[in-house]
Design a protein around this nucleic acid. Structure first.
Length: 1080
RNA sequence: AGAGGCAUAGCUCAAGGGCAGAGCCUCCGCUUGAUAAGCGGAAGACGGCGGUUCAACUCCGCCUGCCUCUACCA
C-alpha cells in the first residue's frame, strides 16, 4: 500500500531532531508559549491594543493580512510555492456591520421598489395571503409587536419564495378607548364642555395617525416588506362603511338584538366591556355572612312545622333568618331574592349570639363551617329538610323592608358560603336569568361611574314603594356613594344593625378592565348584542338549522391551528361564550346606526335605514353622525329612508359606538374582500398573532365572517406566545421590561433580532433581552463565517463555465450535496409547520458540523492545492457553489439583509434573480421535477444518496476515533498538526466488511487520509487483535483499533502533507508529486 | 376553582422505548492556508416518587416547581 507508515524512505528533515518531535511541532510550541494565551484573551476583549500582540505588526495591520504569510523564516522557494496555493479570497466581510448594512439596503430596496418587483414577479401565481391583524395605533412598536411583524414577514417571504403571490397589507386599529383616554388626558381629564364630539374625534384621529406613522417607521426598520404606503386603517371611510355593512348583514339575518342585560361594566372607563377586554387580577374583598330575617315559612313545610314544635322557646321575628353569603356587599341593595338548591339538605339551627337566642336556615353541609367561622355558641340542629321545603318562604330585605321570595336555581352549590345565594338580578348573569324566570325586576341602583344614584333617581332605580321611609337610614347612607366605599359602609351598618353574622377578607382573582385596571362590575344596561345561538333564516331555508355557535365550531375544526392546541382553546371558548355585547358608550368609534324616537325611545332601524346610513358613512365618514350642525337628524335619515311609523317623527341619534373588536373582526370584509389587491383572495391563508387573540381577534373575526360569509376568514391560524423578560415576566410598557423595536434594531441589528426570533420556540413564552439576542449572535456569526468560507473558495469559479455535472462530482462532494438536500427537506418541513426554531437549529447544525467541522475542513487541500482547473477542485467548487446558493436562500426569510448581501457575493448564472427575495425556495432535485415548481440550476444538484450518507457517517466516526488519539499525542508533544501523523487502522473482519461495502479499497485508501486530515492511512485487517502490537481500541466504534504515529516523511513545502513522495519530481525537490505536477 | 403546557449540561435548545446531541461558556491542545477566524480534545444533564416493560430520560399515574389559559360561583 502506498504511503503506508513504516515504509520509510529518506527522511532528511526528520533526522537530528529529538525523537518524536517535528520541526513544526517544536517550533510552534516554543514560539507560542506565553504569548498565545495573551493574544487570545486580548483578541476576544473589547479591542486589540497595539502592545506587540502581533509580532509582525505590518502583517497585523495589513487590510489583506488574511491572505499574506506571516512567517518570516521562509525560504524563497516556499514563498514562491505559497503564491501558487489557491487560498480563499472574498470581500464578503467577516463582520456584518448590520448597523450600516441594513439602513443602506433598505434604502436600496425602497428605491428599486423591491416589494413591487416581488409582486410583479408573482403575478398570476396562486395567491397566499397573510392578512395582517392590526396593532393598536398607540405608543411604540415594541418587541412584542415587532416580533409579530417579523414572524409575519418571515412567513410571507417563505411563501413568496415557494412561488406564490403573497401581498402583505399592514393595518392599524385606530379607534377605541385607549386613544380617547389619552386624548382626554391631554385635555385635562375630560371633554371640555364647549368642545364638540366632532372636534374631539378629530383630535383622536390626529393622535392615531401620528402613531400609525411612527409605528410604520419602526416596523420598517426590521426589514419587513409590505404595502407600507397604503396600509389599511380602521378609521378610513371605506373601512367604516364595511364595518357597518357587516352589521347590516347581521341585522338583516336577525343576529342583532337590543336588550337590557347584565354586562361587564368598567365604571372607571364608563363603558361596557367585552370578554376579551377583561384581565384577571388579584383583589381582596369583604366576605360577609348576612342574616335576612324571615317573614314567613309556608306553614305546612318541614321548617315551619319544626319551628312551631319548638313552642315558646323558639326564637321569633327577626331572630329567625336565612343566612346568605356574598363577597360583594355593594350588591346587597339590589337584592331581590334568595336562591336555594331544591335537592340539597338544609338545616334549621338555633344558637346563641351575644347572649341572644337566634335561628337560621343554612345548608346542612356548611353548618359546621359557619359555626366555626362565626364562633356560634350552643348550636343545635332543630330540623333538617330538603331545599324545596323552603318554597314559599319570604324574607324581609334588611335595608328596604320589602318582602322577597326564596327561589330555586341550578347553580346553587355547597362548595362555599351557606347554600343560600343572595340574588341581585341587576348585578349578575345568573341572577339576572333567575330574576327573569321569577318575574323579578332587574334592579340596578349603580350608575355608569360606579356610584349609587342619589335622591329620587335612587328610589326609582331601586323600585322602592311610593311611601318608602328610610327608617333604618340605609338610603341616606348609600346615595351617591361609590360602590367600593359602600362595601365598608354596608358592612359596618349591617354589623351595627345585627344582621352581620360574620365577615372576613377574602383574596381572589377578579375581572378587571384591561385599560384602566380597575375592577369590573356587572351592571344591567340596555345594549346591542350579536346572538350566538341564532339560527340564520337564510341557512334554515336550505335546511341548515345549525346555530351560529355550532357553525363556528364546525368551521373551527376545518381550520389548521398552529400549535394544534389552539383549536381546543378557541372551540371551548366558543362553546361557552355568551352573546356578544357590541355596544360601547364612548365617542371614538363607529356609531351603531340606530336612531330613537324622541318621545317613546323606540328604536328606528330597518334594512333601508341602515343601508342609507352606510352610504352616508362611506361618503362622509362616521363623523357625519356626530356633526349635528351639518348633519341634523332630518338630513342624516330623511323620511323616505325611515320605516313608515317613524316618518315625520322627531328622532335622536344613539350614543353607542361599536366595540372595537367588532371593527377589527370585520377586517375580512373591510380589507380582504374590499381591497382591490385582495378581493379575489378571500379567505386568507393565514392569520398570525399572539395567542391572546384566541379570545380576541381570531374569535371575533370568526364570528363575523361565519355569520355573514358562512366560512372562516382564514385557513390556517398560527399563534405565538408572549414576549417576556429574563425573569419570565410578561413584557409590558409599565414594567419597563420591553423596548421599542427600532431601538433594538439600531443597537443590535434587524437580522440578529430576526435570527433570534427564528431560533426560539415561539409557542412558549419568549424571553427577549439584549443579552440573549447578543448570545444568538454566535450562531449568526457562525452562519456568516461558514458561508464566507464557501464563497471564499469560489473566487475563480463561474458556474456557467466551471460547474461539473452531478455525475462527475467526487463522492465526498455528492455526500455534501446529499446532506444539503436533507437540510432543505428538513428546513422546508419545519417552515411548513411554522416551527422556525427547528429550521434554524437544522441550519446551525449543518453549518457547525456538516460544513465547518466536516466537509469544509477536509476539502481544503483539494481546493487550495489541487490544479486550479482540474476536475477535483472544480468538483468541490461546484458543491460549494450549490451549498452557498442554497444556504443563502434558506436563510433569506430570516436574515433578510444578510442573505441579500450573500446573494451579491455569490457567483451567479446569467438568469439568476437580482435579489435573493425574488429567488425561489430550494427544492430537492427529485421533487424539483414536479410541474410548476421553480427549479434553479443549483437545485438540480440536491439529491439524497443513502449510500453516501452511510459511507461518510462511518468515515467520520473513524475520524472521531483518530482525532481522539491525535489529540493525546499532541498533548504528549509527539505530534503537531494532523499532517505529521500516519494512522493505521486495525479492523475486525466484521468492520472490514462494512468498509468494503463502502467502496473499493483503492477509493477508500484515497479518501481516508482526506477525511481524517492526516498524511497517510493504512488498513490492517487482523483476526487476532492480540497480535496488533501498539494499537489501541477505539472508544465508540466497535471493531476498530488504531495506531497513530508521527510519520518520518518529509513535508511538502506547498501542501504540508507528508505523503512519502516528496522530491519524486527532481525539478521540485521539496514538493510532493501532486504539487509538483500542479506547479508544473 | 378547573384546563393545558413546560421541567434534559452553568446557559440556550434537541432527539428518541435500547450507548442522551448541538451551540455558547469553562479547561486543555493544535493551526496561523476560514485568522477579530478554524480544528481537535476534556469536563458537564434527563425535577421527585411509583407503575408498565427484558429494557423508561422516553409510555402511564402521583408529587413538586414555573408558566399560560378558562371561569367567576353568590
Amino acid at each position: 500500500m502506498q504511503g503506508r507508515p513504516g515504509a520509510a524512505r529518506e527522511p532528511p528533515a526528520w533526522q537530528g531532531l529529538p525523537a518524536g518531535l517535528s520541526h513544526r511541532g517544536r517550533h510552534t510550541e516554543h514560539a507560542d508559549r506565553g504569548s498565545r494565551p495573551n493574544y487570545r484573551r486580548r483578541a476576544r476583549g473589547s479591542g486589540l491594543g497595539a502592545s506587540g500582540i502581533f509580532r509582525d505588526s505590518a502583517t497585523a495591520h495589513s487590510p489583506d493580512r488574511r491572505f499574506s504569510f506571516s512567517r518570516t523564516a521562509m525560504s524563497d522557494d516556499a514563498k514562491k510555492y505559497k503564491d501558487t496555493v489557491l487560498l480563499p479570497r472574498t470581500d464578503f466581510p467577516m463582520k456584518a456591520g448590520l448597523q450600516q448594512l441594513e439602513p443602506a439596503m433598505q434604502k436600496r430596496w425602497a428605491e428599486q421598489n423591491l416589494y413591487g418587483l416581488i409582486r410583479a414577479a408573482r403575478r398570476g401565481k396562486p395567491a397566499w395571503v397573510l392578512h395582517d391583524g392590526p396593532p393598536y395605533a398607540n405608543g411604540d412598536a415594541h418587541t412584542g409587536t415587532g416580533m409579530n411583524k417579523i414572524l409575519k414577514d418571515m412567513v410571507v417571504k417563505f411563501r413568496t419564495m415557494q412561488g406564490q403571490d403573497c401581498p402583505y397589507v399592514p393595518g392599524w386599529d385606530c379607534h377605541g378607548l385607549p386613544i380617547e383616554h389619552n386624548v382626554l388626558k391631554e385635555l385635562g381629564g375630560k371633554k371640555p364642555e364647549n368642545m364638540t364630539s366632532v372636534r374631539l374625534r378629530e383630535l383622536c384621529l390626529e393622535y392615531a395617525n401620528k402613531f400609525v406613522s411612527s409605528q410604520r417607521e419602526q416596523f420598517k426598520t426590521t426589514g419587513t416588506l409590505g404595502r407600507w404606503e397604503q396600509p389599511y386603517l380602521t378609521t378610513s371611510a371605506v373601512y367604516e362603511a364595511n364595518v357597518l355593512r357587516v352589521f347590516e348583514d347581521l341585522f338583516a339575518r336577525g343576529y342583532i338584538t337590543r336588550a337590557k342585560r347584565p354586562v361587564h361594566w368598567s365604571w372607571a372607563a364608563q363603558s361596557a366591556l367585552a370578554e376579551a377586554e377583561l384581565e384577571y387580577e388579584d383583589r381582596t374583598d369583604p366576605s360577609v355572612y348576612v342574616r335576612f330575617p324571615v317573614l314567613s315559612f309556608r306553614p305546612d313545610s318541614a321548617v315551619g312545622t319544626a319551628l312551631r314544635r319548638l313552642g315558646d322557646s323558639a326564637p321569633r321575628g327577626d331572630a329567625v333568618a336565612l343566612l346568605i353569603w356574598t363577597t360583594t356587599p355593594w350588591t346587597l341593595p339590589a337584592n331581590l331574592a334568595v336562591a336555594a338548591a331544591a335537592e340539597a339538605e338544609y338545616a334549621l339551627a338555633t344558637y346563641t349570639r351575644g347572649g341572644k337566642a337566634e335561628a337560621m336556615v343554612v345548608a346542612l353541609e356548611l353548618l359546621g363551617a359557619v359555626r366555626d367561622k362565626a364562633g356560634l355558641q350552643d348550636l343545635k340542629t332543630v330540623a333538617t329538610f330538603k331545599g324545596r321545603e323552603l318554597d314559599g318562604t319570604r324574607y324581609r330585605h334588611p335595608m328596604w323592608g320589602r318582602s322577597c321570595p326564596v327561589v330555586f336555581a341550578e347553580y346553587v352549590t355547597l362548595s362555599d358560603g351557606t347554600g343560600l345565594v343572595h340574588t341581585a338580578p341587576g348585578h349578575g348573569k345568573e341572577d339576572f336569568d333567575t330574576g327573569k324566570r321569577e318575574n323579578l325586576p332587574a334592579v340596578c341602583p349603580v350608575s355608569a361611574n360606579g356610584t349609587y344614584y342619589a335622591g329620587q333617581r335612587l328610589a326609582q332605580e331601586l323600585d322602592l314603594a311610593a311611601g318608602f321611609k328610610d327608617d333604618a337610614g340605609w338610603f341616606a347612607l348609600l346615595q351617591g356613594q361609590h360602590i367600593f366605599k359602600a362595601n365598608d359602609l354596608i358592612l359596618e351598618k349591617l354589623k351595627a344593625d345585627g344582621w352581620l353574622l360574620h365577615h372576613e377578607p377574602v383574596h381572589h382573582s377578579y375581572p378587571h378592565c384591561w385599560r384602566t385596571h380597575q375592577p369590573v362590575i356587572f351592571r344591567v344596561t340596555e345594549q346591542w348584542f350579536v346572538a350566538i345561538d341564532h339560527v340564520d333564516p337564510v341557512h334554515a331555508e336550505r335546511g341548515d338549522t345549525r346555530t351560529l355557535r355550532q357553525r363556528l365550531l364546525d368551521e373551527i375544526s376545518r381550520v389548521q391551528w398552529f400549535p394544534a392546541w389552539g383549536e381546543k382553546r378557541i372551540s371551548s371558548m366558543i362553546e361557552n361564550r355568551p352573546d356578544w355585547c357590541i355596544s360601547r358608550q364612548r365617542h371614538w368609534g363607529i356609531p351603531i346606526p340606530a336612531l330613537y324616537d324622541a318621545e317613546t325611545g323606540e328604536v328606528c332601524m330597518d334594512a333601508v335605514s341602515v343601508q342609507h346610513l352606510v352610504s352616508v358613512v362611506e361618503k362622509h365618514g362616521s363623523n357625519a353622525w356626530y356633526d349635528d350642525a351639518n348633519w341634523p337628524v332630518e338630513k342624516l335619515l330623511p323620511d323616505h329612508f325611515r320605516p313608515d311609523r317613524f316618518k315625520g317623527r322627531k328622532l335622536v341619534k344613539g350614543d353607542d359606538i361599536f366595540d372595537v373588536w367588532f371593527e377589527s373582526g370585520a377586517s375580512h370584509r373591510a380589507v380582504m374582500l374590499a381591497d382591490p389587491e385582495l378581493a379575489d383572495k378571500f379567505p386568507a391563508a393565514l392569520y398570525l398573532e399572539g395567542d391572546d387573540q384566541h379570545r380576541g381577534w381570531f374569535q371575533v373575526s370568526l364570528i363575523l365572517s361565519v355569520a355573514t360569509k358562512g366560512k372562516s376568514p382564514f385557513r390556517q391560524c398560527l399563534t405565538s406566545a408572549f414576549v417576556v423578560d429574563e425573569k419570565g415576566e410578561k413584557g409590558s410598557k409599565s414594567k419597563g421590561n420591553i423596548w421599542a423595536i427600532d431601538k433594538g434594531v439600531r443597537d443590535l441589528g434587524a437580522d440578529l433580532i430576526r435570527y433570534y426570533f427564528a431560533s426560539v420556540n415561539t409557542s412558549e413564552p419568549i424571553p427577549v433581552t439584549y443579552g440573549l439576542i447578543q448570545a444568538a449572535g454566535e450562531g449568526y456569526r457562525k452562519l456568516r463565517n461558514t458561508w464566507r468560507a464557501l464563497v471564499g473558495n469560489l473566487f475563480d469559479f463561474d458556474p456557467a463555465r466551471h460547474a461539473l455535472v452531478y455525475d462527475r462530482l467526487e463522492p465526498l462532494d455528492r455526500w455534501a450535496l446529499s446532506r444539503t438536500a436533507e437540510l432543505v427537506q428538513e428546513v422546508t418541513a419545519a417552515w411548513e409547520r411554522y416551527e422556525f426554531h427547528d429550521a434554524t437549529r437544522a441550519v446551525m447544525q449543518f453549518c457547525n458540523v456538516t460544513l465547518s467541522a466536516q466537509y469544509v475542513d477536509v476539502c481544503k487541500d483539494r481546493l487550495y492545492c489541487d490544479k486550479a482547473d482540474g476536475d477535483a477542485r472544480r468538483s468541490a467548487q461546484t458543491a460549494y457553489w450549490v451549498i452557498a446558493d442554497v444556504l443563502a436562500r434558506l436563510v433569506a426569510p430570516v436574515c433578510v439583509h444578510t442573505a441579500e448581501e450573500m446573494w451579491g457575493f455569490l457567483p451567479r448564472l446569467d438568469n439568476a434573480q437580482a435579489s435573493v427575495h425574488l429567488a425561489s425556495w430550494p427544492v430537492c432535485g427529485a421533487e424539483a421535477r414536479a410541474p410548476g415548481v421553480a427549479v434553479t440550476a443549483a437545485d438540480l444538484y440536491l439529491r439524497r444518496d443513502a449510500e453516501l450518507d452511510a459511507k461518510y457517517r462511518l468515515l467520520f466516526r473513524v475520524k472521531g476515533e483518530s482525532d481522539r488519539v491525535l489529540d493525546r499525542l499532541r498533548k504528549e508533544k509527539v505530534l503537531g498538526k494532523g499532517y505529521d501523523a500516519a494512522v493505521t487502522l486495525g479492523v475486525t473482519s466484521e468492520l472490514a466488511r462494512d468498509f468494503a461495502a463502502l467502496g473499493s479499497p483503492e477509493e477508500l485508501q484515497r479518501e481516508l487520509p482526506v477525511v481524517l486530515n492526516v498524511s497517510a492511512t493504512a488498513e490492517e485487517a487482523a483476526v487476532d487483535h492480540g497480535a496488533l502490537q501498539g494499537y489501541e481500541p477505539a472508544v465508540e466504534l466497535k471493531g476498530l483499533w488504531l495506531k497513530v504515529q508521527p510519520t518520518p516523511e518529509e513535508a511538502c513545502q506547498r501542501c504540508y502533507r507528508r505523503t512519502g513522495d516528496v522530491g519524486s519530481n527532481p525539478a521540485h525537490a521539496h514538493l510532493c508529486s501532486r504539487c509538483a505536477s500542479v506547479v508544473g
